[in-house]
């Protein structure tokens, strides 16, 4: 967890990964014993097309220092065109993130296939390094004013 010493600060990154490619890619990195930075929490979704602006914005609201959205390479989506939908959603999200004044480097979209364990590790290392350079998110140091509420229906 975060400590006061800036040099030893570790970011908190949220990684959204699709079930069929990126999540399996992370798995491949694991079974291949590829070492990579561990400062992220992974959220598996069935398809990257599911990752709507609300997910990413909620992550930032709850204090994430960076958010990585990942899915199958274009043309390889398990649901044929889900990742094309993901691009639309991502662009929309990015424009709102920029408008809010969050550095755009804190949000990234990457395609990682299930075979690309090494690439997964590489992306994670590079993104973690990038977030480390940016420092903590302005929303990360204190908790957001919203308290964690139970939704009525979800």
């Amino acid at each position: 967890m975060a400590t006061k010493d800036k040099n030893s600060w570790d970011p908190e990154i949220v990684v959204f990964a699709c079930n069929w490619c990126s999540y399996a890619g992370a798995d491949t990195a694991g079974v291949s014993r590829i070492q990579h930075q561990p400062h992220f929490r992974m959220i598996r979704v069935m398809c990257s097309g599911r990752i709507q602006p609300a997910f990413v914005l909620r992550a930032f609201e709850r204090g994430a220092d960076g958010v990585l959205v990942s899915g199958c390479h274009i043309g390889e989506c398990h649901y044929i065109f889900g990742n094309e939908r993901a691009i639309e959603q991502f662009e929309k999200t990015m424009s709102i993130v920029k408008m809010l004044g969050i550095e755009e480097q804190r949000l990234r979209l990457e395609w990682i296939s299930s075979a690309e364990g090494a690439r997964f590790a590489e992306v994670i290392n590079e993104f973690t390094e990038q977030i480390r350079e940016l420092g903590p998110s302005p929303f990360g140091r204190k908790r957001s004013p919203a308290k964690a509420g139970k939704g009525v229906a979800g």
Binding site: F55, L57, R58, F60, I96, M99, G101, K142
Partner: peptide
């Protein structure tokens, strides 16, 4: 909309960034 607009408002309420 998954609460995206409420998140936007709360991020603004939190402040700390220069909106564009």
């Amino acid at each position: 909309h998954g609460g995206a607009l409420q998140s936007t408002m709360r991020l603004m309420a939190n402040g700390g960034t220069q909106q564009d």
